[in-house]
Design a protein around this nucleic acid. Sequence first.
DNA 1: GTAGAACCTCAAGAATGGTTGAGGTCAAGG
DNA 2: CCTTGACCTCAACCATTCTTGAGGTTCTAC
Lengths: 156, 156
Amino acid sequence: MVEVKAKSAERAVRRELSVGEVARRAGVAVSALHFYEAQGLIRSQRAPSGHRRYGRDVLRRIAVIRVAQAAGLSLKEIEQAFARLPEARTPTAKDWARLSAGWRDLLNERIRQLTRLRDDLTGCIGCGCLSLDQCPLRNAADRLGESGAGARLLAE
Amino acid sequence: MVEVKAKSAERAVRRELSVGEVARRAGVAVSALHFYEAQGLIRSQRAPSGHRRYGRDVLRRIAVIRVAQAAGLSLKEIEQAFARLPEARTPTAKDWARLSAGWRDLLNERIRQLTRLRDDLTGCIGCGCLSLDQCPLRNAADRLGESGAGARLLAE
DNA sequence: GTAGAACCTCAAGAATGGTTGAGGTCAAGG
DNA sequence: CCTTGACCTCAACCATTCTTGAGGTTCTAC
């Protein structure tokens, strides 16, 4: 019992987190964390028991993953971006900022495309041209379609 | 031969289209047309041979599908929207306009969300707050995340 | 020391949006 | 006729992003 409490205290001091703790704090399922790890998006140390132990920075990493997903990036793309973060040290705010800046540009581009689509859609309401080659809407849709398959909207 | 040409002419007069023609004109694969039909998004008549024959309005329908997909809707959602089109007659420009209007609103909402995400992202560059509870960016991501799973961005 | 929660691995399943392939029929031209 | 391309069906497969379940271990608290 004393032993057990000591271990618990040790973890608290080191600020290491278990999967469950990370899941609760980050608002994702444990299975998702397993999955992210398998995909190389996050890493963990192991306790002697085999249980995962996470450093605090994993929370930021997950927050970034969620933001990037919301921006429409695939996990693969996010991983590629992460691959350019420094391996040796915990990424600094500046490191994250570089990522953010790139994604902001991407977001801008997609907002631009969607805005255009909306404007074309508004312009076309009731015009009856939807199936014609010269309809700006059809072309807008095609332009958006070029950049990715399926429901992915902001990818690439 | 005379018979055959007559059939061809008949189709031309009636302006019926084969899958291949529709695929070329609409810019989608034949397999996609089969798939859309299986999902109830488009319908076809059959020639005596069993080959599909499409009316001209299928082109508009497909154009609308592509636009809606670009706007982030799933095929299921598009089908539900289509289900409110009149069964009996070929949809009029006004019918399509009603669909478009609804989607425009949706598009507006998503543009708003993405813009907010971008602004938060811009505001957060270098701020170092990404993993903290009060970070607007994390919350923005969560708000976006609520409305749909996976890479789907504009769904619902 | 024992229950119950939390953890582990690995495999399978689910939803979305199609594509690919096998095996066979139909159409159009020479 | 006969070839070639277009078409048919049906099943299997692909990628993505996870979740669920089976079967078993470890942790924590009482």
